[in-house]
Design a protein around this nucleic acid. Structure first.
Lengths: 243, 243
DNA sequence: CCTCTCAACTTGTTGGTACAGGTTGAGTTG
DNA sequence: CAACTCAACCTGTACCAACAAGTTGAGAGG
């Protein structure tokens, strides 16, 4: 059992062919039956190899169709590039964001500390969905302390242009934010929401926006890992930041 | 085939038990044979369910031992918290970094554009390894343009206190940086280097450090996704940043 | 020419068997 | 008592068989 197992050898071979381009992006792999003959292995062994590649996000498999080489290009999210938000900070990719649901929820242990409110305090939650192209890109939940948004359009189940601008009009100006980034494998629910193919991790971001006095908002976003790149700039880079 | 398949049901049941804590962290799951009886399914089906949990990073499996509930707590990397680096910026977690290898390498298409040097230009590459506790935390490669480090201790195969400080002593002061963050599944090589358990994604970070004139260094880091959290702060948050 | 049916393909799921090799603890042996 | 052996477990790998269900294209039928 010390030597590399058969299915790992097969996976390695296929992986190399994918990365070298003998199997072009989007191209179809031979059927499992054909691979049985080529590699002189049983279908189960072939499927173990294909399972590895699927888990690595290199291929996608469609019942009745076949196995295909995966092709996705990530889009870059410039976290620190100003887009004229009220505080000079851009909102998490407003373009393509649509409101899915509006909810009243008491803050749990994940939310309350970040908003610096007691657990159980009421918050207004706006669930947003971002599509990139025809595919699902991310799902967000923006938590607002109830007292901050009472009597504002943020209480209404409608899309808004800029939530931070609305807050500013009510006397709460954003002066900064904190982003916390983690990666992990998706939950089954997220696999459905983001239409994730197996083997694609998610990037989980907690952004807390602050005024001078208090946290204004917590945006919890889960991005499909194969379609996102975050970029942060710090310091005096006027002459050197890239596009 | 429309109904949820048997192995997914089993995985869902076990997942719930893990998340609810009926199966404590670090605890051992029943053996596959015992689960055959409990779920009235074949070993193949049980193993498919366990494979799902393993791919989700919820369990680890050890031949001859059994299946265990995974338990890891991520450590936070404060990307924007100053630690007295020359430019007021901290280096990527200097503590625990050890030099593995020193290399001379011509810049490829990944490196050259970020350092704004022509492809093929010589760079000095310092390979670093960070351990968190007894486990492997991340592997980094720091790329320096050759002309910048000639005649400095950075050409020597020895650990250095602060590379940016050395560069400053030679007239190159860091004034800022750009971080690019992506997530993906690890390559087989990274699985070995980082001692990753299956189902754990990696966080890939490209940090480019700049002086007023030019890029000074590119640090390419691959973190084990289950042991890292990145944090970025922006704006005037003196009173509000958390520990 | 268009539509519909269906055979022939595809992957997904489930059952079984067998053996390799790591791990452990009971029991034997010195 | 210490060391060693070994049976009994564990997971990993590999094979075979069968059926379910999605997909497609050839060909029959209108």
């Amino acid at each position: 059992m010390r030597a590399e197992s058969r299915y790992r050898q097969i996976a390695r071979t296929l992986r190399r062919e994918i990365q070298e381009g003998s199997l072009p992006q989007g191209g179809q792999l031979p059927s499992e039956k054909q691979m049985e003959e080529r590699f002189e292995a049983s279908r189960n062994t072939i499927r173990l190899a294909l399972g590895m590649l699927r888990n690595q996000g290199l291929i996608v498999s469609r019942p009745g169709r076949g196995h295909y080489v995966q092709d996705v290009v990530p889009e870059i999210f410039y976290a620190t590039r100003s887009r004229g938000g009220p505080g000079g900070f851009n909102e998490p990719n407003l373009a393509g964001l649509t409101l899915e649901e509006l909810q009243l929820l008491s803050a749990n242990a994940d939310i309350a500390p970040r908003l610096r409110i007691p657990e159980g305090t009421m918050t207004v939650v706006r669930h947003l969905h971002r599509f990139s192209g025809d595919r699902s890109g991310s799902v967000s939940a923006a938590y607002y302390p109830m007292d901050l948004v009472e009597g504002t359009p943020l209480m209404l189940p409608e899309d808004v242009e800029s939530a931070l601008e609305i807050l500013m009009d009510h006397g709460h100006r954003q002066v900064g934010y904190v982003d916390e980034l983690e990666t992990r494998m998706p939950t089954p629910q997220e696999v459905g929401q983001l239409e994730l193919t197996p083997g694609v991790p998610v990037l989980e971001v907690h952004r807390t926006d602050y005024s001078e006095e208090r946290p204004l908002r917590l945006v919890h976003t889960v991005h499909a890992g194969n379609s996102i790149r975050y970029q942060y700039e710090h310091g005096d880079l006027n002459a050197y930041h890239r596009d």
